[in-house]
Every structure is written in structure tokens, then in C-alpha cells.
Design a protein around this nucleic acid. Structure first.
Lengths: 203, 203
DNA sequence: GTCTATATCCCGATAGAC
DNA sequence: GTCTATCGGGATATAGAC
């Protein structure tokens, strides 16, 4: 996505070639191993083999690198959300499939999901991140629109379903569910319940 | 709650009688000002007027202090959840009131809510925290039980409603809603929708 | 324009003195 | 219990090598 045709990574010399993406990859690895909290710019630099000050030519600070990881996470999540729905699926099935995909992303790629959340908290002044996150809402909004008459109602259903998905995903991260599958099934069931009772969503 | 009859807070002599609670209070202030991420044990010590190593007589490490703040947050949340329901209220109204209270706690006491979440992530080996958090589930489980025939169904409704509340609360923290009231109203409406469609909650 | 080297400051944590 | 001293590490800023 970011750099379509990167040349040879350029082995050992002075210049790295593509330090920016190398750092992002290292950051993902690190977040996967130690979580967002244990991630350090210094360690990422060490792994890539550059001095601790080198990243500052490519990222304003630690948060900027984390935001880049967040963008990547958002892109992967959006891919999963789109792949999860078969063409021509009924709207309610599409909604259920996307909620399931959301939970599965949070479970399978927990470090990326955490990075996305962490980045989302400081997304002010980061248009890249905002743009990357926006299609997530679209993925839920599209099937929701097909289930509602007016736009206002569709918007309410969209946010309600997103809250259901997000709530299950975050509670899963805190050990509230027995397993990934348990969380996914409950989230899907809750989604169907919201759709069944969507008449209650009027303000 | 923690210390029933603490003597005078004793401001004089920069040794106070209760460094433990003083640190917890300072930590709450700090989290309120800089968020969980910007909180530092060193700064908390500075504010209380003790050396940076003093806290280690009362807390094993930084996370232990944060966990203590989490316990306090859980206690306040439980109070709010209990106060939110009028005696003799219908079960569905009770559920709605508690969801609203949950959102309002997350909004009004955002730093405490953040601390609760942060502490919740490392709650392993912290029985105090686990015990403090448990009544939260009870607060949602009680009205849910009154709305369902069997226990299994009640358990499903409980977790679904908690996910709805938690989802709205966390999305609120990320700026997904226009206002606190917007989030609260949507969360309540979504709760009513889940209750209305609770037949879908079967596994 | 990209990286290295260096230097400063802050934080977490431990050991030993009072 | 608390303080002083201290170690190790990390986040940045700056100056200079290429």
C-alpha cells in the first residue's frame, strides 16, 4: 500500500534504503511480542540495526510510528471486513459476518488491534489515520442502510452494531469470554438481537 | 472503604501518616491531567513530597499503584450503578438505567474509567481488583435474570448488555459520538433493542 | 538528505544509610 | 518508612560524517 515497488532492501551499508517501512515492520513485531506498552523506539531501532536517533528522520516521535502501525492495522481490518461478506448476501447476514470478522481480527491480530486502539486515542491531527479508519464505519453502514428505511435510522443501527462489535472485542481482550469463538458467537447473536429489535433505536 | 478510621490526614511534617492513600489520590489527579500513559510514579512522589523510592514501601511497582486506582474506580462505578436504579423499578428500566450510569461514569470520570481499563488488562494475580470488578457484572445480571426464564438465557443477556454498555463507553472515549448525552441515549436505545430481540440470543 | 555519535533529562527500580 | 545514591533504559535534540 505505502510503497508499491520498493527496490532491493540494500544490505549492509551506510544508508538503509527503506528505513521507514523497516521500522514499521519492526514495530509490529515488537508490539506483537511485548504489547503496545512494552514497545520502545530504541528497541525497534536496534532490531533494524540503526542508531536510536535515526527514526526521527522518518517519524516525528514515538507516537507517529505507532500511528503508522495503526494505519496498517486499520487497512488489514478493512480488508477482513470486506472479504467476510459473500457477494449478494442478505443485509443481516452481511452485518453478522462483519461483526464476526471484527471479533476475529481483534482476537487473531490482537497486537495490531491494540495498536489501532492506542493510535485511535491520539488521532487528532493525523489525517492518514482518520482516513484509514473511516472505511470501518462504512463496512457496517452499508448493510445497515439496506435494513432501514430512512438514513437517520440507518445511522443509529450502524453505530449500535459497531458498539456491539467493539464492546465484545474489547471485553474479549480483558478475558470476559471463554474463547475467541465464544466471543464471536455472542457478538453475532447480539447483533441479530439488535436488528430484531431495531424499532427501539428511535431517539 | 480501604481504611475505615484513618486518623487526621496530618499535613504538617512532610511525612504524612498515610502515604498509601496520598499516592492513590495523587495518581488519580495525574491520570486526570495526563492520562494513564503520561502517569509516572516519580511525578506522583514529587507531588506528595516524598522521594521517588518511597512508594515502593507501599506498592510493588507502578502497576500495583495503578491497580489500586482501578479498585477505587470500580468501587465508584459500582456505587453509581446501584444508585441509578429506583427501588421497585421494572427490570428493563433497571437495565437501561444501569447502562446509562455506566456511560455517564465513563464520561464524567474518564480518567478513573481509563485507569479501570488499564488495570483490568493486568488483573492476573490481583484478587483485590477481581473482587472489586465482580459486582459490576452483578449489577447487570440481576435485572437480566428478571427478564429471562432460564439461567443460561440470563447469562447471555447479561454479557450482551455489558458489551453494549462497554462498547458505547469505549467508543465515546475515541470520539465516535457527538456528546456524552448522545452516547448515553444511543446506549440505552441499543439496550432496549437487545432486550426486544433477546430471542435471538440463543446459542 | 540519511544516518552516527553524543548528550540531556526523565523514569523505574534497587541497595543501603538514618 | 523514608531518604540518598545509583544503575539501566528510553525519548529526544543537536552536531557532524557521508
Amino acid at each position: 500500500m505505502t510503497s508499491p515497488a520498493t527496490a532491493t532492501p540494500s544490505r549492509a551499508s551506510y544508508h538503509h534504503g527503506d528505513l521507514r517501512t523497516a521500522l514499521i515492520e519492526a514495530a509490529i513485531e515488537l508490539v506483537a511480542e511485548r504489547g503496545v506498552r512494552g514497545f520502545s523506539l530504541a528497541e525497534a531501532s536496534r532490531r533494524v540495526g540503526v542508531a536510536g536517533s535515526a527514526p526521527y528522520r522518518h517519524f516525528a516521535d514515538k507516537d507517529a510510528l505507532l500511528a503508522a502501525v495503526g494505519v496498517l492495522a486499520a487497512n488489514r481490518l478493512v480488508e477482513m471486513l470486506q472479504r467476510s461478506v459473500a457477494w449478494g448476501a442478505a443485509p443481516e447476514e452481511a452485518l453478522a459476518a462483519r461483526v464476526r470478522a471484527y471479533i476475529e481480527f481483534a482476537a487473531e491480530s490482537r497486537p495490531l488491534f491494540e495498536a489501532l486502539l492506542a493510535a485511535g486515542r491520539n488521532k487528532v491531527g493525523r489525517p492518514e489515520l482518520i482516513a484509514a479508519v473511516e472505511p470501518i464505519a462504512t463496512a457496517f453502514g452499508e448493510p445497515s442502510a439496506a435494513l432501514c428505511r430512512d438514513k437517520a435510522q440507518a445511522e443509529r443501527l450502524t453505530l449500535a452494531v459497531m458498539a456491539v462489535a467493539h464492546g465484545h472485542a474489547t471485553l474479549l481482550g480483558e478475558g470476559a469470554f471463554a474463547s475467541r469463538e465464544d466471543a464471536a458467537e455472542r457478538a453475532v447473536a447480539a447483533t441479530r438481537a439488535v436488528v430484531a429489535g431495531k424499532a427501539q433505536l428511535r431517539a
